[in-house]
Design a protein around this nucleic acid. Structure first.
Length: 936
RNA sequence: GCCCCCGUAGCCCAACAGGCAGAGGCAGCCCCCUUAAAAGGGGUCGAGUGCCGGUUCGAAUCCGGUCGGGGGCACCA
């Protein structure tokens, strides 16, 4: 059938030939090479630059489906548009190739992860090359390349050798801290002079301050993965984000990064970013800053201990009728009374004979509950410790409980319970028969339980009558003055757990001496290469078995682990750290390496960093000009990368405080999937629709909507689309489906619309039978010029604002006009402009047509047409005339007509005149250039 | 439970800062080309904007409520 088609029709086959030709051309000519100010990639640089970046892809073994390139094409169109308009555009793509998925894929396929990962990268590169993305391929990087991770390790060392100086509000070299201790400017923790401490003691003191430190705190242990993971990688229901395995809290010695030191700056600088509000909100929420106070309660009869609580509502202190400690709270044993008071409430004892027995039993039950159980079951439980505390503000004697609704991990692990103003406390108080004292007067008509709204303080002594805000101030001043507490800020954010017990990651540039002291390796020993091992598979465990311990694969590489080094005091034997970094490490700084991918001496030359990523104006945080990716990294990658950027900024290594100035979340391409009567997925490509029902192989199937994936049997690949329609058609279709940020269903049957448009456009310029150019030297008429310039103006605006769907529509509209008005071929003037405007969306066919039109050079660097104002202003305006808000007629008046003129013309219009009748209208509204509304 | 976003022709989507509901594509229908067909050409049909109420001369657009869909957070003191 194809042999019947005209020889020069723009078919998939022709598109394919054109596309391959131009892809080769671009590669050979380095069309998308963006010059740097200095270094190996230096060249003449225009002042006006643009750095566009896609979120670091992981080269999956499954290859791409049509959803993946959506963002890549989006950035490419934006980059091409700006490149055509004269800017120096940096756009490239590398690979985030370390990490669990790569390792799991390798284990599955029985091949070394380096092999599978590198193969996958090749597949990926082949797939994205076919899409015609204008990448500077000199800047391809991969996190698994030792020349890349050498600098990841280098940054780790920088962070390790730093501490956060709260006084300066920034990170400083640890040597500054050491100098402060040496000079006595800063006292040692126990007051001894610095010189009096042993070397080990000094290191221990410094380690307390480092931004990277080893910690024995409880961490998230995932036996099913054989590794620990960070808080950010644990889902709300207490399972691992990857693999969905149970997560257990265990004390393990692990590397942590002190991201909490940056909590305030990470929140405050969000205001300086051009990011979706949703993502900002998620980060604010994750960091969870809350202002409140710490209050000390004396516990015991007589005084045994001070229990400190954190509260965001210190103003309600007079209403605290009991205290609650987390079951794991370290003071519980100390305060638990030897016996119940004689009049103890039966509900408080848990049926035990002594408080100690009750506490032990309660702790046992609590520890067997998973986080999920705790969350799902919001019934309040707890037991009385037999102890009482004294409310510092009024001397009231209040009982102390333990209950699992108080979490050890937040605040101080202890609360003052104010049932009158807190629903959780209300629920507990109701369950246990505890008194309620309202300290904020609810409105008259309030019929709820705890009242959390604002109102005047009551039952609160010197606070009475004050609103919440003033009462907080007053009570904090009182607590401070009487040494019962102080105002404070609390964060939900925890330090970042930075080690993994996996093979496929960056090794730590750290060794341990015979005492087990961690020693950072000197820069000269970087990179610490990942050793080749036979058995790289992680030791995983029964996912439910909490009592297992991690066993890093690197610990089995004994001849790598034991190493003889001269670290200053002669050759000695050390043990290497056998953990690897989390896969987030590589993506924390990759934009810096894109800027200077081949620099041997530094992770990025400062001149290049300033040019591409530096602040552009006072107050500008700096960063990538447009960063496109999915919303799923809102608090993982994006938070970690911001943290590293800030540390590097504090240390003077980079000029901007933020890595990504503007963030844009593209939507997802989703797809229908179909299941048969057994619930088994059937090949979605073979399902047919009939009368609103769906059939596969003649049998009705059920339709569901969601992701595209192998197991759902609904994957459509860009390769298939390029084969069947060509890459330009595919690009155009993806960009036409809707606005970039909206998720939408994939519909292969709709792709033909994009292809028809390109065929029509091609036909307007090229004779389908002979291949000859069909462009004429005819002067376009006025109407065509008006439409042309209106289109140019609109398309500029659309491209600049990522509205590619409407840009495409405007080009179709213009082309339709050309088809109708110029059956003998397009006027050259119009043809050239159309081709130029098409180029960002469909670069191959645009290059081809441009060349046929006589363009000597690639269209990649322009020209791009600009609109002539002359054709944008109309000489006449058609006004719709509304009568009481309904359109009843229309008049055409000169564009310069005054309001009175328009009004007169409107009233004279015959249909309107009939409606208005003889009486005068009550009101006539003339909206200049828009419409007339007559109110009767 | 709390917070955020979205509901416009059969489907995907336009409509800038309240001013004529339709730019574009798919499907449908008609016609042309064709022995025939369509991934060809030309044309055409099609919703009053989820629902209720308010503000306004005028509401898809602003406000309140409600229903439906999607997302985030969730015993964080």
């Amino acid at each position: 059938m194809t042999d019947e088609q005209p020889a020069h029709r723009y078919t998939a086959a022709l598109a394919g030939r054109i596309e391959r030709r131009w892809q080769d051309h671009w590669e050979q000519h380095g069309t998308y090479h963006a010059p740097n100010p200095v270094g190996p990639l230096a060249g003449p640089v225009p002042e006006d630059k643009l750095f566009v970046q896609d979120m670091f892809p992981y080269p999956s073994g499954a290859g791409l489906h049509v959803g993946h390139p959506l963002g890549f094409i989006g950035t490419d169109v934006f980059a091409r548009y700006h490149r055509m308009n004269g800017r120096n555009v940096l756009h490239t793509m590398g690979f985030d190739a370390f990490g669990l998925p790569a390792e799991q894929y390798a284990v599955q396929t029985g091949q070394h992860p380096r092999k599978t990962t590198e193969d996958n990268i090749q597949t990926y590169l082949r797939q994205i090359r076919r899409l015609g993305l204008g990448h500077d391929e000199r800047r391809r990087i991969s996190t698994i390349d030792p020349e890349y991770y050498r600098w990841t390790q280098w940054i780790f060392l920088k962070i390790f050798h730093s501490w956060y100086d709260p006084a300066a509000g920034k990170a400083r070299p640890i040597s500054d801290l050491e100098a402060q201790f040496t000079s006595g400017e800063r006292a040692t923790p126990d007051g001894r002079p610095w010189a009096g401490l042993t070397a080990g003691e000094r290191q221990a003191v410094l380690n307390e301050h480092r931004l990277v430190y080893l910690s024995d705190a409880p961490v998230n242990w995932v036996p099913g993965l054989g590794t620990v993971v960070s808080n950010e990688e644990v889902t709300a229901d207490g399972r691992s984000e990857r693999g969905n395995f149970p997560v257990f809290r265990r004390n393990l010695r692990q590397w942590m990064m002190r991201i909490t030191a940056y909590a305030d700056r990470l929140i405050d600088d969000l205001d300086r970013l051009d990011w979706p509000d949703k993502v900002k909100a998620m980060q604010r929420n994750w960091i969870g800053r809350s202002h409140g106070a710490r209050v000390r309660f004396t516990v015991g009869d007589p005084q045994d201990a001070d229990v400190e609580v954190f509260t965001t509502r210190p103003d309600t202190l007079f209403g605290a009728t009991y205290l609650v400690l987390a079951p794991e709270h370290p003071l519980v044993d100390a305060i638990t009374a030897p016996a119940w008071p004689s009049d103890v409430d039966g509900r408080w004892t848990g049926g035990a004979d002594t408080p100690a027995a009750a506490v032990a039993a309660y702790r046992r039950t609590a520890s067997t509950k998973s986080d999920l159980d705790r969350q799902e079951n919001k019934e309040k439980t707890g037991v009385f410790t037999g102890a009482h505390a004294t409310n510092p503000v009024n001397g009231a004697r209040i009982p102390v409980f333990i209950a699992d609704y108080v979490l050890m991990g937040y605040g101080t692990g202890a609360i003052m319970a104010v049932p009158g103003q807190d629903q959780r406390d209300w629920d507990f108080a109701t369950e246990f028969g505890l008194p309620v004292v309202r300290t904020v007067a609810p409105p008259e008509d309030f019929d709820g339980e705890a009242f959390t709204g604002d109102g005047p303080a009551v039952n609160s002594g010197f606070l009475d009558g004050l609103g919440i805000a003033e009462a907080k101030k007053a009570i904090i001043a009182w607590l401070t003055e009487h040494d019962h507490g102080h105002g404070t800020i609390q964060y939900k954010l925890r330090d970042w757990l930075f080690s993994r017990q996996r093979y496929w990651g960056e090794p730590f540039p750290v060794v341990y001496d015979e005492d087990g002291t961690a020693i950072a390796l000197p820069e000269s020993m970087l990179p610490v290469a990942l050793p080749e091992v036979d058995d790289y598979s992680p030791r995983t465990f029964d996912p439910e078995d909490a009592d297992t311990v991690p066993s890093p694969p690197l610990s089995r590489a004994t001849d790598w682990v034991e190493v003889e080094l001269d670290l200053g005091d002669g050759p000695k034997t050390y043990r290497r750290d056998t953990n690897t970094m989390p896969n987030w490490a590589g993506s924390c700084w990759y934009q810096l390496r894109y800027v200077d991918p081949t620099d041997q001496d530094r992770f990025c030359a400062p001149e290049n960093e300033r040019y591409w990523l530096g602040p552009q104006s006072p107050g500008d945080p700096g960063g990538v000009d447009l960063y496109i990716g999915g919303v799923e990294h809102a608090v993982l990658h994006l938070l970690y990368a911001r943290f590293w950027q800030k540390v590097l900024y504090d240390l003077g290594e980079v000029s901007g405080v933020e890595p990504y100035r503007r963030l844009f979340n593209q939507g997802y391409i989703q797809a229908y999937a179909y299941t048969d009567e057994r619930g088994v997925y059937v090949n979605a490509g073979e399902v047919v629709e009939e009368g609103g029902k769906f059939f596969f192989d003649g049998k009705e199937v059920r339709r569901e909507y969601g992701k595209m994936g192998k197991s759902l049997r609904n994957v459509v690949t860009p390769d298939e689309m390029c084969e069947a329609y060509g890459a330009d058609t595919f690009r155009l279709y993806e960009m036409s489906m809707g606005p970039m940020e909206v998720s939408r269903p994939w519909a292969t049957k709709d792709v033909v619309g994009a292809q028809r448009f390109l065929q029509r456009l091609w036909r307007n310029l090229v004779d389908e039978e002979t291949g000859a150019l069909r462009v004429t030297d005819a002067e376009p008429d006025e109407a065509t010029l008006r439409l042309l310039h209106k289109t140019i103006a609109g398309v500029h605006d659309d491209y600049a604002n990522l509205r590619y769907n409407t840009a495409g529509a405007k080009l179709i509209e213009l082309n339709n006009h050309v088809t109708k008005s110029f059956p003998d071929g397009a006027p050259r003037l119009v043809a050239e402009a159309v081709v130029q405007m098409l180029a960002p969306l469909c670069p191959h066919v645009a290059e081809e047509l441009w060349q046929r039109l006589g363009g000597a050079e690639s269209l990649a660097h322009g020209p791009f047409p600009s609109a002539d104002e002359r054709y944008l202003v109309e000489d006449t305006v058609e006004y719709p005339i509304q009568v009481n808000g309904k359109v009843r007629g229309r008049v055409t008046v000169p564009a310069g007509a005054g309001q009175d003129e328009v009004k007169a013309a409107a009233l004279a219009e015959e249909k309107v005149a009939v409606l208005v009748g003889s009486g005068a209208p009550r009101k006539v509204i003339v909206v200049p250039g828009r419409l007339v509304n007559i109110v009767l």
